[in-house]
């Protein structure tokens, strides 16, 4: 069990570093979606399903949509 948790934490770190490193902001948004996806699973492992539900609702749908609207109004590529 703890092996799976450490693997998931590693994946979350990889996703976070990728979100910081991408110059294409759309790809950064997608990587951030992966990070919140795995964060929900980790809350689930910590026996907090209500927090996981809030994280799922906010992270999966709302953040992605709001960030997409934001880069629609501004630039897609980082200078």
């Amino acid at each position: 069990m703890i092996l799976i948790v450490s693997l998931l934490v590693l994946l979350m770190l990889v996703g976070a570093v990728a979100a910081c490193a991408f110059k294409d902001l759309l790809s950064a948004i997608i990587a951030a979606a992966l990070v919140s996806l795995i964060a929900a699973v980790l809350f689930y492992f910590l026996q907090a399903p209500d927090v996981a539900m809030a994280e799922a609702a906010v992270g999966a749908a709302l953040t992605t949509a709001i960030f997409v609207v934001a880069i629609r109004r501004t630039n897609r590529y980082e200078q």
Partner: peptide
């Protein structure tokens, strides 16, 4: 715990 999966199944496709 199944409710979390329910929320996921409904909401992830919006992103």
């Amino acid at each position: 715990y199944l409710d979390v999966a329910l929320v996921y199944a409904v909401l992830t496709f919006i992103g």
